[in-house]
Structure formats: C-alpha cells, structure tokens
Design a protein around this nucleic acid. Structure first.
Lengths: 207, 207
DNA sequence: AATATTAGCGGACTTGAGTCCGTTTGTCAA
DNA sequence: TTGACAAACGGACTCAAGTCCGCTAATATT
C-alpha cells in the first residue's frame, strides 16, 4: 500500500545493524498499518512483530509521529518535487500567483486525503512536535507565504496584508485533525474543500 | 483565578453526595490547575487531593476534557450571552454582517487567549470528542455560519459562497492547538491575529 | 587477529489515562 | 422507621507510551 525505498541516504553514520533495523522496522510498521490501520497498531506491536526490543524501536524512532513521518518520506519528497515543478511551469506561463496558490492548496488536499491516518498520527501532540516532526508543515507554510508575497509584489493582493499570518490561516483548515473532521463527520467531498479554499484565496484578490 | 458558581442547575437527578463531589472536584481541580498549571496536573492528582477515589472522579467527569469544559462552563455562558447581546445591538444599528463577524472573531480571540490551557486540554483528542465536548465549537460554528448566511442575503458577499465550509475555515486558525502555536512559537500578538482574521473576512466582501 | 571503544540492543520499569467490579450509602416507598 | 435497590464509591487493574540501564557486538585501531 505504502511503498518505501529511499530513506537509505542520510543516516550515514549509522552502524550496519542499526540501518538494517531501521528498514526492518519501517517495513514491519508499513505492513501492520496496512493490515490493521494506523490507529490500532501500537509501538510494542511493531517492535514485537519485527522481533526487536521496544528500546530498539524507540532508538530509531523516538515516537510514533517520527515513525509515521519516515513512512511518508518518499511520497512527501515526490509531492514536493511535483508541486515545485508545476509551480515553476505556471510561473513561466505567467499564471497569476493567487491561481498558483489555489492549485497548490488543491494538490495538498489530494495528498492529505491519501495520507490522512499517518498525518493525524504525526500531529497528534498539538503541532510543534520536537523540531523535525513538522518540517513538512514549515515547507507548506513557506510555500504559501512565498506565493502570497509574490502576489503582493504583483499587486494581485493588497500590499498591506499580513502574508505570514494569512499563510498560516489558509493552511489551518488543512490541519489533519480538522481535515479529518470535515471529511468524516461533516462528509465534505474533496472538491468541496478545494473549492472552498480557492474561493477564500480568490477573494483576497478582489480588494 | 477561575471562578465557578453555577453548574448547580442541570444535573438534577443527581444524588446529594454526587452533587457534593462534583463541586468538591471542580474546586479541587481549579485550585490545582491554578497552582501547577493544567498540563502538569493529572486525574489521579485531582482525585487524591479531593480525597476521593479515581473511580469517583471518572464517574463525574469521564475524562480530563469534560472536566476542563465544566470548569469553563460559567465563563463560556457569559461569553456567549455577551456576544449575542452585542450582535443584537449591532443588528439594530444596521452594522454590516461581515463587520459583526469581525467583531465576533475578535471577541473569541480574547476569550480563547485567556482560556488557552483549558481549551487545549479540551481538544487534545483531535476534535470530535464524544458529543458534548465540542458543543462550544458547534455554537461558534453556527454563529459564524449564521452571520455569513445573513451577509449573503444582504448581498454583502456572493451568494455562491459555501458558507458552511467557510465558517469552518475561518474558525480553523482559532483551533486551540494552532492558536497556541501562533501565540507561543510564532509570537503573534492578539491584535495581529484579530487583524489577520478580519482582513480575511473583509476580503470576502469585495468580490 | 586482538582489543578498546561505543553505538546499539532488549526488556523491565515508570507514568498516566481510563476501566471494572465488589462494597457502601442515599433515597423513596411502605 | 425500615428495608430494597439503584446510584455512587474506591482503588486495584489494564493498557499503551515512553524511559532506563546493564549487556552485547560492530567497528576502528594496532
């Protein structure tokens, strides 16, 4: 279901047995998550299924959030690469920045929906998990803020707007917990969410 | 610090000892929270400090979230009453609905900031806690949606906008976890947040 | 190849949330 | 009053996350 293949790079100073265990644990977690669901599997289960001690698991991945993030690593990079490529392309076609922002958000909606269970786990402990945990969020934030700043420079939006805050506010409805709530409790379809966000973004332009 | 006085009403079918314990537990929790902070106090501490068994505590308040909500009960009602009164007043003065919405959000920003620790605890378990836990959220949501609908009827905003989604999106940045992140990590001041939200709301009007 | 170093390993342990169930006690009706 | 019975009580218990620390073994050095 979730395929992994590259977290090979990085972790260079890792001893051979440690690297082997990293892979073993990722594969085991992937398998258990696919079979029973992310929420139903606990750390002890993963360690046992992998045949290692709990301490070993926690040495590699200090918590479930980090483990889940590692499982998404590949797809996250792919997503980022694809998005950046698309934005560059639009850039050349002189597509307005606000429209680029709309595309970005829509793309992330699709990504988030696929990876919702993992994303929810990643941000279970309200936001700023220790450093690296929310690096993906930082990337999204900077991308959105960058597009808003560019839009401001091109006079697509008022230069008085607080782009830093707005970037955060526009991403807020996509926080995994809220997104999950809207999908499963409210029953909103993906394009309803995309459309809603786009209407917010576009309205910023008509000021 | 946090004063409580009315959860006397409701809970009518409660036995005398149960009602006494409810009060005792609320007072104890309030005291411990004030002294050590909400996050640092656990359920066992509260039960012990109150001199009752853990089971008794959990019978009254099935989890920490419910307990925290009960501690805010009074102030929450007061807040709601005050807001409704102000909105009615503005209504009579023919203040545009979008502007009313801006006021509403600003008022909630102030409220949320004061009660952040309790609010964070209330929504620790990603959103839809069992039923009553997020009734305050439902109230906020309905209020925002109501104002947006009214604005649409008055042609302040496009009638095509998805007010249900927008209401949720506008409240999203005020989710306790995000609000806390913005306040403590980003260092945003309250009026920066209010202003940012208002600019979003107002931009909806210029379409 | 022998050895020192030190990362890595395992699993018992701690901590806190929340449950279970046998015992106690308030309440209401007789 | 008294007695039955449901509600309430207490605290031991379960379950999962995460820590600790003594032992093991991979690697680097000679």
């Amino acid at each position: 279901m979730i395929e992994l293949n590259l977290p090979i790079n990085e972790h260079k100073g890792e001893r051979a047995d440690a690297a082997a265990n990293r892979l073993l644990l990722l594969e085991t977690a992937e398998r258990l998550f696919a079979q029973y669901g992310v929420a139903a599997v606990n750390m002890a289960d993963i360690a046992e299924a992998a045949g290692v001690g709990k301490g070993t698991l926690y040495r590699r991945f200090p918590n479930k959030a980090t483990l889940c993030l590692a499982l998404m690593d590949t797809q996250m990079r792919t997503f980022q690469d694809e998005i950046l490529a698309r934005l560059r392309q639009m850039q050349m076609q002189r597509v307005p920045y606000l429209q680029q922002l709309g595309h970005f958000l829509e793309a992330f909606v699709l990504f988030a929906d696929i990876h919702l269970p993992l994303l929810c786990e990643v941000q279970r402990e309200g936001w700023l998990g220790d450093e690296g945990v929310d690096r993906p969020y930082i990337w999204r934030y900077l991308t959105v803020k960058g597009l808003l700043d560019a839009a401001a420079r091109q006079q697509e939006i008022s230069p008085d707007l607080d782009t830093a805050y707005l970037a955060e506010a526009l991403l807020a409805p996509l926080h995994p917990a809220l997104f999950h709530f809207q999908r499963s409790q409210r029953g909103y379809e993906l394009d309803r969410i995309s459309t809603g966000l786009r209407s917010l973004v576009e309205s910023l332009g008509n000021s």
